[in-house]
Design a protein around this nucleic acid. Structure first.
Lengths: 209, 209, 209, 209
DNA sequence: AATGAATGAGGGTTCATTCAT
DNA sequence: GATGAATGAACCCTCATTCAT
């Protein structure tokens, strides 16, 4: 996900970079503590130990600094999806690894994912962003499904994109329920195992050997 | 889902009942047009053709009238899930029917479901409400899965509740993506078919004798 | 204190009289519980078990019903001051009896006196009312002082009205502190005794015999 | 009477201090003109020539700015009571001086004293404040009375605190009637003289020499 | 005479944004 | 670049009062 239109250019001086970074770090902390809506800009500037006016040197709005927070966390969030593993590996093992990777990345950024969910439900720009991320995840998984089908290893009657859309949604919703809503009683291992088994079953992936 | 604690007593006169109903109807319209956050109480009272003060005769807050809107729409939303079909029916057919019913009910109330998603991301009380609804749906499907397992018709290695949680989430997320986000290109039939096929596969439901 | 300008005519029907009386009784209760300012008219009508509109059948405003509450309590409040005793009685005994009567009447209506103090500080009409009551008390005591002076029993250098103003104020302030503010630690007897002794001393009333 | 808990931190810049001071001065003016209840915050900000929002930079409420107004006037109000005079002075002269000082200070702040009376009748926090001030005055006079008793110059049968409570109340009520209610016809000198004579008589202070 | 719903003016309060220093 | 005070639009909410039934 390249720089979204929500971001402006970086400051030039050393001090400017430091202040900007302090604001972003403070913003993430405050957003995660208070939620997006309840966060006031002065809460952020207070946490960053700078004045209210300084905020506008770097960001034009709350949306813009939230975009910057997301951008900083983005690298870590790009891991999930199918990691590159040797093609000859057991498909079930690959799916298991992929799901585990997704859940773990989700866990590391759980609060932020909850925030993104909240902001996406409020602001169309972030709805698009969320959609783009979801689509990237879906397309990657769709390619993997199509690949298995071509190799005769998965149910050929399924539309790869639709199936990926459904199954990827299943995974992300599970992660949301587990790490954000936090109401699930099961252990992470159980969830990954069940999700993987359902995924494998759903695609009718032939058991190995 | 009984009356939530968010509701107060009903008015006693005919006129009062009419005004209250007008407010709820207006609120639903305005919420669906402008979203929850951007709706101001005066927008609602204007749409209901009454004065600002009248609002407070019936509701204490925006949350309260939103709860009333949901309550009114609730009956229709309780249908989805497993419809009552003869037990001897083809399990796959039952699942297909259930999924179709869910998607259709979702479609009828799509804007409201999008609103609930938004409000749940903002207000903890509605987060609980959404959770309760999701849980009811999950438990119903879990019972169905357990039943199939007992009859030897579904993969016995799956935990029914966990599997239901995953698959029910898959369904509701699909519905959300299809009817609320609205970005899906597929036809409703294709989605129902794919969802059903994945569900049937995932549970390893034996093809009918 | 005759009917003040704050009061209107009485209702004619039996039912009307009953409702009016219920409103006044309720008003006194609510005023004493919540204070004048914090009392809303619906609090009164609720307590009187009638509707909001009914209030206006009998009273034009909160002030007016408060005036009615005072009027009803008035008879009891007219006792204080010098009670009529035989002129040949011991002057000190008369003063003691008078003070005691004042304190006791004050005690019976302490909450109402506190209210009157509050309302007088807010509403000029009641400031006048309070002043009239105080003046009546002062003039009565002034006549008593003048009488003692004429009989050679009290310090002739004092202006009777001024002295009465000071001493009467002393008494009413003591009563206010004792029954309304409620911070005094002394017993009522001690207060009456001290007040009487100070009063007798202040007028240099010759000890008897 | 230290800073009450009603006050927040002072602004740091010169400009801030100026604005805050302007608000307090304006508040005093408006309160004295319109009374506490009838004063709206915008009346104050208008009088201080700043916007409505600025008020909240310095004060959280009407109570808070009223506390600040009182605090500013407080120094002047602490003078009254017994001024320091040589111990060997004529007790009556000391009392006269003390009373005169009290009346003069009261006169300088008469409007504010009236306001305090009003606010104390409305707001419990200020009721406490008024009580504390009254108590300080009473205790000071009680010490003076006890001292006279010990020197054999005053009626030993009086309880000093009770007597002070009564006589101090007499003085403050006179001042209130004279400067706030404003209905008294007498001259200030006459009032001071009468009050002093009553006070001296009441304590049976021995005539000098 | 009683009802209780409808009215709407009026005040308080917040906070993103600007700007002089 | 940084500061923090000033701004004022925007909205919420209360409640005395009116009025149709």
């Amino acid at each position: 996900m390249a720089r979204s239109g929500l971001l402006r250019e970086l400051p030039v001086t050393e001090r400017g970079l430091r202040t900007r970074a302090a604001l972003i770090a403070a913003a993430r902390r405050v957003f995660e503590r208070s939620g997006y809506l309840d966060t006031r800009l002065i809460d952020i500037t207070k946490a960053a130990k700078c004045s209210a006016g300084t905020f506008y040197t770097y960001f034009a709005s709350k949306e813009e600094i939230f975009a910057a927070v997301l951008e900083l966390a983005q690298e870590d969030m790009m891991h999930p999806g199918m990691p590159h593993v040797a093609a000859e590996d057991d498909p079930a093992a690959i799916i298991a690894a992929s799901n585990r990777a997704y859940f773990e990345a989700y866990k590391r950024n759980a609060k932020l994912m909850g925030l993104l969910e909240q902001v996406a439900s409020i602001d169309p720009e972030f709805r698009v962003l969320r959609q783009q991320r979801a689509d990237a995840f879906i397309r990657r998984n769709a390619r993997s499904i199509a690949n298995l089908q071509q190799r005769g290893l998965a149910d050929p009657d399924l539309d790869p994109l639709l199936a990926s859309s459904a199954l990827s949604g299943m995974i992300s919703r599970l992660a949301f329920g587990y790490f954000v809503t936090g109401g699930e009683a099961a252990s992470l291992d159980d969830i990954v195992d069940t999700a993987t088994r359902l995924w494998v079953n759903a695609l009718r992936i032939a058991p190995r050997g």
